[in-house]
């Protein structure tokens, strides 16, 4: 905190800071390797913990130096903005590893990241089957169906103001409810297999999409609408050529919110009953058998799947709304 008052480091300091960061990486690697040495693993002496704290302090100092570095906007700054959280995350993982291994924390309580990684690598077929059951069969179809239904109802509601006035407050209200609770009902209706999970995901994703699309369809400005009207555009042209494109950022926002909701919905719905495959099934049964490394491996898969799903939507968004930031300056010219 006190370092915030220091003057910004000179440009010549960049190399020094990068060196510090690399040294921090080396320190982390050293501590992690040391923790696994016989004689330290499980019964680490005091000097080892002192070393761990020192390494931690050193990486924090490296992060501090990197963060306070005044960089020109551009590649160097972007690299820094990626490097700092990476080093921080790595530090957290190494601390997790070192504490678990060094203090000999039992596997049933908290497996170290290395054990989780090992489990991840050795049980790829199981994880792949679970991923297929939950993500490919339940999350993706449910997300697509729920979002499409929300979108369709929003377009209809947009044409019927009465419907919109009735649906929008309800949609906002329902979005705050614990919809996940319909999982047992869906399991009862559609059986244990993926159909019931699709049902849960459809209901969970419907309302955020409805609310976002309705908001988006109202996002185009009066000027643009007047312009369209002066072109004698009908309501269809108005929708397709102006209001839907203007609504795209909102629609993508809904899709992104839904990507996380869909994954949560499918996993939690599996806690209520599944065939013997699926990410939620695996989490709930392996946790009962205290095989926490498997549970964590499943969570890692879920995290990667969620991030990639979100990232894919964000990429499509960038491709579809590339015009959006450049639109206004062009109009002002």
């Amino acid at each position: 905190m006190t370092a915030a008052a220091l003057p910004a480091p000179k440009a010549a300091g960049v190399a020094g800071v990068a060196g510090t960061a690399l040294a921090a990486l080396a320190a982390l690697a050293g501590v992690a390797l040391l923790a696994h040495r016989p004689g330290i693993a499980g019964s680490a002496p005091l000097w080892f913990w002192a070393l761990v704290v020192a390494a931690w302090a050193f990486t924090w100092w490296a992060n501090q130096r990197m963060s306070l570095l005044a960089l020109p906007a551009g590649a160097a700054e972007r690299t820094r903005d990626v490097a700092v959280p990476l080093l921080f995350g790595l530090t957290c993982f190494v601390l997790w590893e070192v504490v678990c291994v060094g203090a000999g924390v039992p596997l049933v309580l908290m497996p170290p990241p290395s054990a989780i990684l090992e489990r991840l690598v050795t049980s790829v077929p199981t994880l792949a089957a679970d991923f297929n059951q939950t993500f490919v069969r339940a999350v993706i179809p449910g997300w697509a169906l729920g979002s499409a239904a929300g979108f369709a109802v929003a377009v209809v509601a947009d044409r019927v103001p009465f419907l919109r006035r009735g649906l929008l407050p309800l949609g906002n209200f329902v979005s705050a409810l614990p919809i996940i609770g319909i999982a047992p009902i869906m399991v009862m209706w559609f059986g244990f297999d993926w159909h019931s999970k699709v049902g849960v995901v459809v209901v969970m994703t419907f309302f955020p999409m409805l609310v976002n699309t309705v908001a988006g369809l109202g996002a185009s400005g009066h000027l643009e609408r007047d312009l369209m009207r002066s072109y004698a555009a009908g309501s269809w042209d108005m929708l397709v050529k102006l209001r839907l494109p203007a609504a795209l950022p909102f629609i993508f926002n809904g899709l992104k919110i839904n990507s996380t909701l869909a994954l949560i919905g499918a996993i939690v719905a599996e806690f209520f009953g599944t065939p013997i495959v699926g990410m939620g099934f695996r989490i709930s049964t392996e946790v009962g058998r205290l095989a926490l490394d498997m549970v964590w491996a499943e969570i890692v898969v879920a995290a990667i799947a969620g991030t990639l799903f979100y990232g894919a939507i964000a990429l499509v968004e960038r491709a579809a709304t590339f015009w959006h930031p450049s639109y206004r300056p062009a109009r002002g010219r």
Binding site: V84, F88, A302
Partner: peptide, 17 residues
């Protein structure tokens, strides 16, 4: 710089699991 990116990224993963 260290924490905020992680907090934002964590919104994309099903931490409820």
């Amino acid at each position: 710089k260290s924490l905020l990116p992680w907090i934002i990224a964590s919104q994309t993963i099903p931490i409820l699991a």
